[in-house]
Every structure is written in structure tokens, then in C-alpha cells.
Amino acid sequence: MNDLRAVLWIARKDLLQEARSKAVTVATVFFSAVTLGVLAFAFGQNPDLMRTGAMGALWVALAFAGVISAAQSWQADLEDGALEALLGWPLPRAAVYVGKLLANWLLMAALGVLLLPIAGGLYGADLGPSAGWLVGIVVAGTLGFALIAVFYAGLTANLRARESLLPVLMFPVVVPILLAAVRASGAIVGSDDLELAAAWLRLLVGFDLVYAVVCTTLFRFVVEA
């Protein structure tokens, strides 16, 4: 009960910080918009290519934004030794992780839902009659991504060269998330193939479940002295 309260306070703290500084929001929205634009140029005005690549571009943009978001979220904790002080208090280390995870997930999922119609419009892809599924895929996909990103961002926060190290460590782990999310949303947008989307969504949810347990269990070894 107390632990749950601690989780919510940490999440609330992160969201409050973000609401005031808007550091993550500004950076991720701008960055993902640029990514979508650059990739649109890369597809070279080929409408077919654009349509099929829409969801791929969306998840590439989300992935890069997710790295920024996770790294930024720990940055505030490192300033002025706030995290250091916090870890001296008798609260479970996992609460810190889960709290930050919730805040990050919320921000990423919101960004994903925001980007859906933008990517659709920009790439000339009709989101289709089952667009509601896309929200579910974004929610499950960003959870998997945030699970790994927040975990590794916390791990690298105390290491030298953390900015360059974070993507190196986390991207090989999140490959299945990105593949599954791209395929699932592509199945909806391209062909309205709910069965195929469901198969990929199951992989996403399985990943989420396994990593929710693994990361929450292991987090204390990451921050404990």
C-alpha cells in the first residue's frame, strides 16, 4: 500500500516536472515531427511506398523520441543530487522504477496517439475502419519500449558516456517491440487484417508482461550501492 503510494508520488513528481519544464514534450514532439518529415523525403514521393511505410516511420519517430524522453527523465533526478538523496530513504527501489515508468509511458503513449493521424495524413495512408486498434497497439508498444528505455536509462545514468551508451544497449532488446508494433499497425492501416494484427499484438503483450516482471525485479541491482 505504502509502496503503491510511493510509485504514484514518483510518477506524479515526474509529470509535474514535465508539466512545468515541458522539456520532454517540446523535444519529443519536435523531434518526431522532423523524423516523419525526413523519412517522407527518403521515400521519394512514391505514394505506394509512402502508404506502406507510414507506420514504420511512425514507430521510428516514436522510438527516437522514447530514448530522449527516458534519458531526460533521469536527468532531472541527477541534478543537484536529488536521486541520491531519495535513494537514502527507506522506499523500495522498484517503486522508483515503476513510478518513472508510468510517467514515461503516459507521455509516450500520448505522443503516439498524437502522431497517428499526423503520420496518416503526411503519408497519405488512410488509418482505416479499425483505427481504434491502433490506439491499443500504441499503448502496448510504448509500454514495452518504456519498460526497457527507463530501465537502461537508469542503468546508464551513473556511467560515463551515458548519452551514447543508452541506444547501444537498448535497441537490440527492443527490436521485437518495434517489429511487432510496425507489423501490427501496418496490418491495420494497409489491409485491415485484424487477425494478423492480433498475432503481433499478442507478441507485444507477452513482451510487456515478461519485461514488467524482469525489470521490476532486477532494478534494485541497478541502483543499489
Binding site: P172, V175, P176, I177, L179, A180, R183, A199, W200, L203, G206, F207, V210
Partner: peptide, 8 residues
Amino acid sequence: FNYLAAEW
């Protein structure tokens, strides 16, 4: 997960 994703 990587294997499943790559296989599918």
C-alpha cells in the same frame, strides 16, 4: 521475442 519477431 527477437527470434519470434524475426521469424514472423
